[in-house]
Protein backbone atom coordinates (compact mmCIF):
# COMPACT_ATOMS: atom_id res chain seq x y z
CA UNK A 1 0.00 0.00 0.00
CA UNK A 2 1.43 3.30 -0.98
CA UNK A 3 0.54 6.49 0.70
CA UNK A 4 2.51 9.60 0.12
CA UNK A 5 2.33 13.00 1.67
CA UNK A 6 4.22 14.74 4.42
CA UNK A 7 4.95 11.50 6.30
CA UNK A 8 6.11 9.46 3.36
CA UNK A 9 7.63 9.78 -0.08
CA UNK A 10 6.41 12.28 -2.62
CA UNK A 11 4.19 11.04 -5.39
CA UNK A 12 6.99 11.03 -7.99
CA UNK A 13 9.50 9.50 -5.61
CA UNK A 14 7.17 6.60 -4.87
CA UNK A 15 6.51 6.04 -8.58
CA UNK A 16 10.26 6.08 -9.16
CA UNK A 17 10.89 3.51 -6.40
CA UNK A 18 8.15 1.26 -7.72
CA UNK A 19 9.68 1.31 -11.22
CA UNK A 20 13.18 0.63 -9.89
CA UNK A 21 11.84 -2.35 -7.96
CA UNK A 22 10.28 -3.70 -11.16
CA UNK A 23 13.54 -3.32 -13.09
CA UNK A 24 15.48 -5.19 -10.42
CA UNK A 25 12.88 -7.95 -10.34
CA UNK A 26 13.39 -8.43 -14.09
CA UNK A 27 17.17 -8.55 -13.81
CA UNK A 28 16.97 -11.07 -10.96
CA UNK A 29 14.28 -13.33 -12.39
CA UNK A 30 14.92 -13.69 -16.11
CA UNK A 31 17.72 -15.24 -18.12
CA UNK A 32 17.68 -12.90 -21.09
CA UNK A 33 15.86 -9.62 -20.58
CA UNK A 34 15.82 -6.85 -23.15
CA UNK A 35 14.52 -3.29 -22.92
CA UNK A 36 12.57 -1.76 -25.77
CA UNK A 37 14.00 1.63 -26.62
CA UNK A 38 11.79 3.78 -28.81
CA UNK A 39 13.72 7.04 -28.25
CA UNK A 40 10.59 8.91 -27.10
CA UNK A 41 10.11 10.70 -23.79
CA UNK A 42 8.79 7.58 -22.05
CA UNK A 43 11.84 5.65 -23.25
CA UNK A 44 14.04 8.44 -21.92
CA UNK A 45 12.39 8.11 -18.50
CA UNK A 46 12.67 4.32 -18.73
CA UNK A 47 16.39 4.58 -19.51
CA UNK A 48 16.92 6.98 -16.61
CA UNK A 49 15.12 4.63 -14.20
CA UNK A 50 17.07 1.61 -15.47
CA UNK A 51 20.34 3.44 -14.82
CA UNK A 52 19.13 4.28 -11.30
CA UNK A 53 17.96 0.72 -10.63
CA UNK A 54 21.37 -0.86 -11.21
CA UNK A 55 23.76 1.95 -10.27
CA UNK A 56 26.73 1.66 -9.82
CA UNK A 57 26.45 -1.37 -12.14
CA UNK A 58 25.69 -0.79 -15.80
CA UNK A 59 22.29 -1.77 -17.16
CA UNK A 60 22.62 -5.57 -17.21
CA UNK A 61 20.68 -6.10 -20.44
CA UNK A 62 20.66 -4.66 -23.97
CA UNK A 63 18.32 -1.99 -25.30
CA UNK A 64 16.48 -2.87 -28.52
CA UNK A 65 15.27 -0.39 -31.11
CA UNK A 66 12.95 -1.54 -33.88
CA UNK A 67 13.96 0.72 -36.73
CA UNK A 68 11.33 0.99 -39.44
CA UNK A 69 13.74 3.24 -41.41
CA UNK A 70 11.03 5.92 -41.31
CA UNK A 71 11.88 7.43 -37.93
CA UNK A 72 12.73 11.12 -37.64
CA UNK A 73 16.42 11.67 -38.39
CA UNK A 74 16.79 13.55 -35.10
CA UNK A 75 15.57 10.47 -33.25
CA UNK A 76 18.29 8.26 -34.72
CA UNK A 77 21.01 10.81 -33.94
CA UNK A 78 19.71 11.11 -30.37
CA UNK A 79 19.58 7.33 -29.95
CA UNK A 80 23.20 6.86 -31.00
CA UNK A 81 24.40 9.69 -28.80
CA UNK A 82 22.57 8.28 -25.73
CA UNK A 83 24.09 4.84 -26.29
CA UNK A 84 27.54 6.40 -26.40
CA UNK A 85 27.03 8.68 -23.38
CA UNK A 86 25.42 6.14 -21.08
CA UNK A 87 27.36 3.13 -22.34
CA UNK A 88 24.47 0.73 -22.78
CA UNK A 89 24.37 -2.08 -25.31
CA UNK A 90 22.21 -0.95 -28.23
CA UNK A 91 20.63 -3.42 -30.64
CA UNK A 92 18.86 -2.20 -33.78
CA UNK A 93 16.59 -4.42 -35.84
CA UNK A 94 14.78 -3.81 -39.12
CA UNK A 95 12.53 -6.41 -40.76
CA UNK A 96 14.78 -7.54 -43.65
CA UNK A 97 11.90 -8.86 -45.79
CA UNK A 98 9.99 -5.62 -45.28
CA UNK A 99 13.08 -3.66 -46.23
CA UNK A 100 13.68 -5.79 -49.34
CA UNK A 101 10.04 -5.36 -50.42
CA UNK A 102 10.33 -1.62 -49.76
CA UNK A 103 7.32 -1.68 -47.40
CA UNK A 104 6.43 1.93 -46.63
CA UNK A 105 3.55 3.91 -45.16
CA UNK A 106 2.50 5.35 -48.51
CA UNK A 107 1.98 2.26 -50.66
CA UNK A 108 1.00 -0.24 -48.01
CA UNK A 109 -1.27 1.79 -45.74
CA UNK A 110 -0.59 2.48 -42.09
CA UNK A 111 -1.98 -0.77 -40.73
CA UNK A 112 -0.09 -3.18 -43.04
CA UNK A 113 3.06 -1.10 -42.78
CA UNK A 114 2.85 -1.13 -38.97
CA UNK A 115 2.22 -4.86 -38.92
CA UNK A 116 5.22 -5.67 -41.12
CA UNK A 117 7.75 -3.09 -40.01
CA UNK A 118 6.83 -2.92 -36.31
CA UNK A 119 4.86 -5.93 -35.04
CA UNK A 120 6.58 -8.54 -37.21
CA UNK A 121 9.96 -6.90 -36.85
CA UNK A 122 9.57 -6.96 -33.08
CA UNK A 123 8.61 -10.61 -33.15
CA UNK A 124 11.65 -11.42 -35.30
CA UNK A 125 13.99 -9.59 -32.97
CA UNK A 126 12.54 -11.16 -29.84
CA UNK A 127 12.67 -14.65 -31.34
CA UNK A 128 16.18 -14.20 -32.68
CA UNK A 129 17.46 -12.93 -29.34
CA UNK A 130 15.65 -15.64 -27.38
CA UNK A 131 14.55 -12.95 -24.92
CA UNK A 132 12.37 -14.14 -22.08
CA UNK A 133 11.46 -10.66 -20.83
CA UNK A 134 10.93 -7.49 -22.83
CA UNK A 135 10.60 -4.24 -20.90
CA UNK A 136 8.41 -1.54 -22.44
CA UNK A 137 7.39 1.99 -21.56
CA UNK A 138 3.61 1.64 -21.90
CA UNK A 139 1.45 3.42 -19.33
CA UNK A 140 -2.02 2.49 -18.17
CA UNK A 141 -3.33 6.01 -18.68
CA UNK A 142 -2.52 5.93 -22.40
CA UNK A 143 -5.34 3.91 -23.81
CA UNK A 144 -8.31 1.86 -22.64
CA UNK A 145 -6.94 -1.64 -23.21
CA UNK A 146 -3.61 -0.71 -21.62
CA UNK A 147 -5.47 0.25 -18.43
CA UNK A 148 -6.11 -3.42 -17.79
CA UNK A 149 -2.70 -4.84 -18.53
CA UNK A 150 -0.58 -6.30 -15.77
CA UNK A 151 2.85 -4.91 -14.91
CA UNK A 152 4.28 -8.36 -15.68
CA UNK A 153 2.20 -9.38 -18.67
CA UNK A 154 2.44 -12.95 -19.85
CA UNK A 155 2.85 -13.81 -23.55
CA UNK A 156 2.50 -17.27 -25.06
CA UNK A 157 5.07 -18.76 -27.43
CA UNK A 158 3.46 -16.79 -30.30
CA UNK A 159 3.93 -13.51 -28.33
CA UNK A 160 0.14 -13.16 -28.04
CA UNK A 161 -1.66 -11.58 -25.09
CA UNK A 162 -4.77 -13.24 -23.71
CA UNK A 163 -6.65 -10.50 -21.85
CA UNK A 164 -9.12 -12.96 -20.35
CA UNK A 165 -6.42 -15.18 -18.90
CA UNK A 166 -4.14 -12.72 -17.13
CA UNK A 167 -2.38 -13.72 -13.96
CA UNK A 168 -3.73 -11.92 -10.91
CA UNK A 169 -1.13 -9.45 -9.65
CA UNK A 170 -1.33 -8.70 -5.94
CA UNK A 171 0.66 -6.37 -3.71
CA UNK A 172 4.16 -6.08 -5.18
CA UNK A 173 4.49 -9.81 -5.78
CA UNK A 174 5.15 -10.58 -9.43
CA UNK A 175 4.82 -14.08 -10.85
CA UNK A 176 7.78 -14.24 -13.22
CA UNK A 177 7.58 -17.97 -14.03
CA UNK A 178 7.54 -19.05 -17.68
CA UNK A 179 7.31 -22.27 -19.66
CA UNK A 180 9.87 -22.75 -22.45
CA UNK A 181 9.17 -20.46 -25.39
CA UNK A 182 6.92 -18.15 -23.41
CA UNK A 183 7.92 -14.64 -22.54
CA UNK A 184 6.97 -11.70 -20.36
CA UNK A 185 6.31 -8.10 -21.28
CA UNK A 186 7.12 -5.84 -18.38
CA UNK A 187 5.87 -2.29 -17.95
CA UNK A 188 7.67 -0.36 -15.20
CA UNK A 189 5.78 2.87 -16.07
CA UNK A 190 2.32 1.30 -15.70
CA UNK A 191 1.22 3.64 -12.91
CA UNK A 192 2.67 6.84 -14.36
CA UNK A 193 0.52 9.43 -16.11
CA UNK A 194 1.66 11.65 -18.97
CA UNK A 195 1.87 14.54 -16.54
CA UNK A 196 4.01 12.48 -14.15
CA UNK A 197 6.39 11.74 -17.03
CA UNK A 198 6.81 15.41 -17.88
CA UNK A 199 7.20 16.59 -14.28
CA UNK A 200 9.75 13.83 -13.68
CA UNK A 201 11.71 14.80 -16.80
CA UNK A 202 11.72 18.36 -15.51
CA UNK A 203 12.68 17.63 -11.92
CA UNK A 204 15.37 15.08 -12.84
CA UNK A 205 16.73 17.06 -15.79
CA UNK A 206 16.35 14.12 -18.18
CA UNK A 207 17.43 14.79 -21.74
CA UNK A 208 14.79 14.26 -24.46
CA UNK A 209 14.93 14.73 -28.22
CA UNK A 210 14.44 18.31 -29.47
CA UNK A 211 11.40 17.13 -31.47
CA UNK A 212 9.30 17.64 -28.34
CA UNK A 213 10.10 21.35 -28.34
CA UNK A 214 8.41 23.81 -30.66
CA UNK A 215 10.64 24.87 -33.56
CA UNK A 216 9.92 26.06 -37.06
CA UNK A 217 9.58 22.84 -39.05
CA UNK A 218 8.50 22.05 -42.64
CA UNK A 219 5.00 20.58 -42.53
CA UNK A 220 2.12 19.56 -44.79
CA UNK A 221 -1.46 18.81 -43.79
CA UNK A 222 -3.03 15.34 -44.23
CA UNK A 223 -6.66 14.72 -43.16
CA UNK A 224 -6.44 17.49 -40.59
CA UNK A 225 -3.09 16.30 -39.22
CA UNK A 226 0.18 18.19 -39.57
CA UNK A 227 2.98 15.98 -40.89
CA UNK A 228 6.61 17.04 -40.83
CA UNK A 229 8.45 16.42 -44.07
CA UNK A 230 11.66 15.00 -42.62
CA UNK A 231 13.35 13.85 -45.83
CA UNK A 232 12.97 13.65 -49.60
CA UNK A 233 11.13 10.32 -49.45
CA UNK A 234 7.89 12.03 -48.39
CA UNK A 235 5.37 12.00 -51.23
CA UNK A 236 4.07 15.46 -51.82
CA UNK A 237 0.96 16.20 -53.89
CA UNK A 238 1.71 17.67 -57.34
CA UNK A 239 2.70 21.26 -56.79
CA UNK A 240 2.60 20.92 -52.99
CA UNK A 241 5.27 22.66 -50.96
CA UNK A 242 5.91 22.11 -47.23
CA UNK A 243 5.44 25.29 -45.20
CA UNK A 244 7.39 26.31 -42.12
CA UNK A 245 5.34 26.29 -38.93
CA UNK A 246 6.07 26.47 -35.20
CA UNK A 247 5.22 22.90 -34.22
CA UNK A 248 6.20 20.21 -31.76
CA UNK A 249 5.39 16.55 -31.19
CA UNK A 250 3.64 15.06 -28.18
CA UNK A 251 4.51 11.55 -29.22
CA UNK A 252 7.14 10.21 -31.62
CA UNK A 253 7.09 7.42 -34.16
CA UNK A 254 7.49 7.13 -37.91
CA UNK A 255 7.48 10.65 -39.25
CA UNK A 256 4.91 10.14 -42.05
CA UNK A 257 2.44 8.78 -39.44
CA UNK A 258 3.11 11.20 -36.59
CA UNK A 259 1.03 14.32 -36.21
CA UNK A 260 2.59 17.57 -35.01
CA UNK A 261 0.75 20.21 -33.01
CA UNK A 262 1.03 23.92 -33.49
CA UNK A 263 2.72 25.29 -30.40
CA UNK A 264 5.12 27.91 -29.10
CA UNK A 265 6.25 25.75 -26.20
CA UNK A 266 9.98 25.73 -26.81
CA UNK A 267 11.13 24.54 -23.40
CA UNK A 268 10.04 22.13 -20.69
CA UNK A 269 8.15 24.53 -18.42
CA UNK A 270 6.10 25.75 -21.35
CA UNK A 271 5.36 22.19 -22.45
CA UNK A 272 4.11 21.24 -19.00
CA UNK A 273 1.97 24.37 -18.77
CA UNK A 274 0.60 23.64 -22.22
CA UNK A 275 -0.08 20.04 -21.24
CA UNK A 276 -2.13 21.10 -18.28
CA UNK A 277 -4.26 23.27 -20.46
CA UNK A 278 -4.47 20.71 -23.25
CA UNK A 279 -7.77 19.19 -24.23
CA UNK A 280 -6.78 16.31 -26.47
CA UNK A 281 -5.28 12.97 -25.53
CA UNK A 282 -1.76 12.21 -26.61
CA UNK A 283 -2.39 9.21 -28.83
CA UNK A 284 -4.63 11.27 -31.08
CA UNK A 285 -1.47 12.28 -32.90
CA UNK A 286 -0.87 8.67 -33.81
CA UNK A 287 -2.62 7.62 -36.96
CA UNK A 288 -2.46 3.88 -36.28
CA UNK A 289 -4.84 3.86 -33.34
CA UNK A 290 -7.81 5.35 -35.10
CA UNK A 291 -7.99 2.74 -37.86
CA UNK A 292 -10.78 0.84 -36.13
CA UNK A 293 -12.46 0.57 -32.75
CA UNK A 294 -10.54 -1.68 -30.35
CA UNK A 295 -7.55 -1.45 -32.67
CA UNK A 296 -4.89 -1.29 -29.95
CA UNK A 297 -6.30 -4.33 -28.21
CA UNK A 298 -6.29 -6.22 -31.49
CA UNK A 299 -2.70 -5.26 -32.24
CA UNK A 300 -1.62 -6.38 -28.80
CA UNK A 301 -3.24 -9.76 -29.14
CA UNK A 302 -1.19 -10.11 -32.31
CA UNK A 303 2.00 -9.24 -30.45
CA UNK A 304 2.36 -5.48 -30.85
CA UNK A 305 3.92 -3.78 -27.88
Amino acid sequence: MTNSGPRGLSHLKSLESESIEIFREVAASFERPVMMYSIGKDSSVLLHLARKAFYPSRIPFPLLHIDTTWKFREMIAFRDRMAKEHGFELLVHTNPEGLAANVNPFDHGSSRYTDIMKTQALRQALNAGGYDAAIGGARRDEEKSRAKERIFSHRNAQHAWDPKNQRPELWRIFNTRLAPGESMRVFPLSNWTELDIWTYIYSEGIEITPLYFARPRPVVERSGTLIMVDDERYRLEPGEKPREEMVRFRTLGCYPLTGAIRSDAADLPSIIMEMQASRTSEREGRLIDSDQAGSMEKKKQEGYF
Binding site: L226, G259, I261, D264, A265, E274, A277, S278, R279
Partner: peptide, 11 residues
Protein backbone atom coordinates in the same frame (compact mmCIF):
# COMPACT_ATOMS: atom_id res chain seq x y z
CA UNK B 1 -6.23 20.85 -33.82
CA UNK B 2 -6.33 23.75 -31.43
CA UNK B 3 -3.24 25.82 -30.98
CA UNK B 4 -2.37 26.46 -27.36
CA UNK B 5 0.21 28.96 -26.35
CA UNK B 6 1.60 30.12 -23.05
CA UNK B 7 3.60 33.14 -22.22
CA UNK B 8 7.05 31.68 -22.00
CA UNK B 9 8.82 34.18 -19.68
CA UNK B 10 6.60 33.50 -16.66
CA UNK B 11 6.28 29.76 -17.31
Amino acid sequence: MASVSMTAPTA
